[in-house]
Nucleic acid binder design. Structure first.
Lengths: 225, 225
DNA sequence: TCAGCTCCTGAAGGTGCGCTGAACTGCAGC
DNA sequence: GCTGCAGTTCAGCGCACCTTCAGGAGCTGA
């Protein structure tokens, strides 16, 4: 789990890094808001620990800037005093949790883990056609309840067909979208892969999702065949 | 609410018990570290009040031992003098809060209630996938009943995979999250560690939790394989 | 009915990805 | 020092996947 700690008090920052590393986190440090912002943009962190009082850009600003850019990495804010205002403001600007200094190290780790567990889970959509479904992100195809193992090329083809379910797609289009533009091999490859998909998606279920339109191309039945 | 007070000064201990009982707590007493540890293990307390200066096993040791065993009962430490070292050390060993002697009885009760109220939410949770489980805080992995010894790198990898169980994670993602971002060594390291995990988690049990998706990455079976 | 075409099918290379065992490095404990 | 362990690097190997190919089946129009 990769974590960025943005904290200007160096001893505290170093202590946190040491502790978090020992817990198995991969911890990076930034000592001011500008650096913090930059690093948070450039790297895929699982969580941010963000002090409010920072030289340059302060914690609130870092937080709201990131949120404004569509970055939803979980953020744990460190508020200096036990002021209600601080905490409320932290949550307002888009932080996910806050901790009042001085804080217990155990509590920090626990809250951090909780944040990461909840995580930022924006799920890409699942494509479907009748009882046939395909989740491109998870790389899982299903017919009814059962999961179907597909190779990368088979998935690319299925994804393309599902995006255009109900439409006729020519072999030329398939070649252009599923294979590289500069593919100049045997176009028969499309037929071969259609066959592979049929063997996996249709035959075991006695269905016919992929229809051949002689001279025109193929069509994936919108209802899954 | 059941509370254990571990305190060797008998008058203070008795006074606390009387007061806490009056507040509606069910209070047990232990007068040294050994007894305290034993009682904390055997009974499901909602909180512990733990003096640092104890005959035999001291408060720090009691605290870190319990944490090491995966016991996350909230602990309120009593530090003798107002030394920063004491406080920091208390928190380091896993205490949730501390109080400097002499303390106000009202404050003690208030903090104790606060701890108990927050209590559950702060305990690190255990990740699981079927009969496979991993407690990131205790750093213990188990398959079924048996505990499995893992190195810290193996744990980081397992933790990352378990957080995203059922999803496909690419080697690049694994490198970015489990290794430091400036790691520019051989990406083959991921394969090597996947192999280590398989040797420890799968092979002895004839299972297959970690699936290879050629060209895409790896996936930890949500049901443990 | 036949030719010409498209598409299907099974099998057979190549190739590169991932697996594997071993060696090397650095660090901690004795 | 030596020993053992964790982390990392490396090179060879096998196989899964991709692609090609040739023959066959089936459709279409004359």
């Amino acid at each position: 789990m990769r974590v960025l700690v943005v904290e200007d008090e160096k001893p505290l920052a170093e202590g946190l890094k040491k502790g978090l590393d020992a817990e198995g986190f991969a911890t990076d440090l930034a000592h001011d808001g500008t650096d913090g912002l930059w690093m948070a943009r450039e790297n895929p962190y699982d969580a941010l620990v963000l002090d409010i009082m920072l030289p340059g850009v302060n914690g609130y600003q870092v937080c709201s800037t990131l949120r404004g850019e569509g970055n939803w990495t979980p953020i744990l804010m460190l508020t200096a005093k036990n002021g209600e205002l601080d905490e409320a403001e932290a949550l307002d600007t888009g932080a996910d949790d806050y901790l009042t200094k001085p804080f217990s190290y155990v509590v920090l780790v626990a809250r951090l883990r909780a944040l990461i567990r909840r995580g930022a889970g924006e799920r890409p959509s699942v494509l479907d056609a009748g009882d046939l479904s395909f989740d491109p992100a998870a790389r899982v195809a299903r017919r009814g309840g059962s999961e179907i193992a597909l190779t990368s090329r088979e998935m690319s083809l299925l994804e393309f067909l599902m995006h255009r379910k109900g439409e006729v797609v020519s072999k030329r289009e398939i070649l252009d979208h599923v294979w590289d533009y500069d593919f100049d091999g045997d176009p028969n490859i499309v037929e071969v892969y259609v066959r592979h998909l049929r063997n996996k998606l249709d035959r075991p279920f006695g269905r016919a999702a992929i229809e051949t339109l002689r001279g025109a191309g193929y069509r994936l039945a919108a209802d899954g065949g």
